[in-house]
Design a binder for these strands. Structure first.
Length: 297
DNA sequence: CCGCTGCCCTGCAGGC
DNA sequence: TGCCTGCAGGGCAGCG
């Protein structure tokens, strides 16, 4: 599942191939790959034909190619999206959704997406402060590596939420780039229960979560950066290059690396949270709400 | 305005 | 063996 470190790895991998190159042709092989984003006016991807890619930028999990001061080609990998610089001669992948000719004799850009939650679209750029952002990114908060990231402001926003901290961490309008995996990992590092109400957290505890986020993402980035070769600019989601370092996510029934207590999995909404019941206690304020996690066994 | 649920989609694992 | 169900989870629409 591509979260910030995976998208950033893709961005870094694409830069040497695409910056200053001209988009010759984009071919959409699956309509879903170019579905209208929100109520955005749908501009055909062919509008990018002939444009030079000035820069490749990222905020949170959103990636975009800046084409000029007015327009960008924006992409989101969704859950299963992959971007590869691939030999033109290789046959189409089973879930190839879009390909782009960027003027390289031997290689082309391929967008592959099994579950089709990903998309690419032409999006007008707008000024936000000193940043040029695609319209679809205007509501996305700066991520933890962004120079606009404001630690105090984010702490205040988290504390003013009425939700559980896990939900808040997944809210891309407060702090972007975090998905289910990194949320669980950061909470494990900070020793905070995923169902703690955000408003009950001390600033110190939120700082611990934020540094957990930064640590685990930095670690993932350093590994992701070493895992791709010349042709593949993306990380292979299935290879689990980061699995070795996972302490909570997907570790149900495994002993906690700190205390040996078995990691527990609980449902929330349509998804799940993984945590150590001993290192990450609910805290007094949670006891009244539910004992669902106890009932699962 | 805010918070939460349901939904989009496909492949795969596990149960019967 | 084959069918069915549930699960994976990004983010949005729509509801209360």
């Amino acid at each position: 599942m591509p979260e910030l470190p995976e998208v950033e790895t893709v961005r870094r991998g694409l830069e040497p191939w695409l910056v200053n190159r001209k988009i010759k042709r984009i071919e959409v092989l699956h309509q879903g790959a170019h579905r209208g984003y929100r109520k955005m006016e749908e501009i055909p991807l062919s509008a990018a034909h002939g444009s030079r890619i000035k820069a490749i930028r990222r905020r949170g999990k959103f990636l975009w190619f800046e084409l000029n001061e007015d327009i960008a080609l924006v992409g989101h990998l969704g859950m299963s999206g992959q971007i590869r610089i691939q030999s033109r001669r290789l046959p189409s992948e089973p879930h190839l959704r879009l390909r782009m000719d960027f003027g390289d004799r031997r290689h082309e850009f391929r967008f592959i997406d099994q579950r089709t939650f990903g998309w690419m679209a032409i999006d007008p750029l707008a000024l936000q402060g000193s940043d040029l952002l695609p319209l679809s990114v205007l509501d996305i908060a700066p991520d933890i590596f962004d120079s606009n990231f404001n630690h105090k402001h984010v702490i205040a926003r988290i504390m003013s939420s009425k939700s559980e901290i896990k939900r808040v961490l997944l809210d891309q309008s407060i702090l972007s780039g975090i998905g289910n995996i990194y949320a669980d990992e950061a909470l494990w590092r900070a020793k905070i229960h995923p169902e703690r109400k955000a408003a009950t957290l001390e600033p110190k505890e939120i700082s611990a979560i934020l540094s957990g986020v930064k640590q685990v993402m930095t670690q993932a980035l350093s590994r992701g950066g070493t895992s791709f070769d010349e042709l593949y600019v993306n990380v292979n989601g299935e290879s689990g290059y980061f699995d070795l370092s996972l302490r909570a996510y997907g570790q149900e029934g495994e002993p906690c690396h700190r205390c040996g207590t078995l990691i527990k999995r609980i449902e929330f909404g349509n998804r799940s949270s993984h945590f150590c019941p001993r290192c990450q206690p609910r805290g007094r304020n949670m006891r009244a709400i539910t004992n669902r996690s106890v009932r699962t066994r």
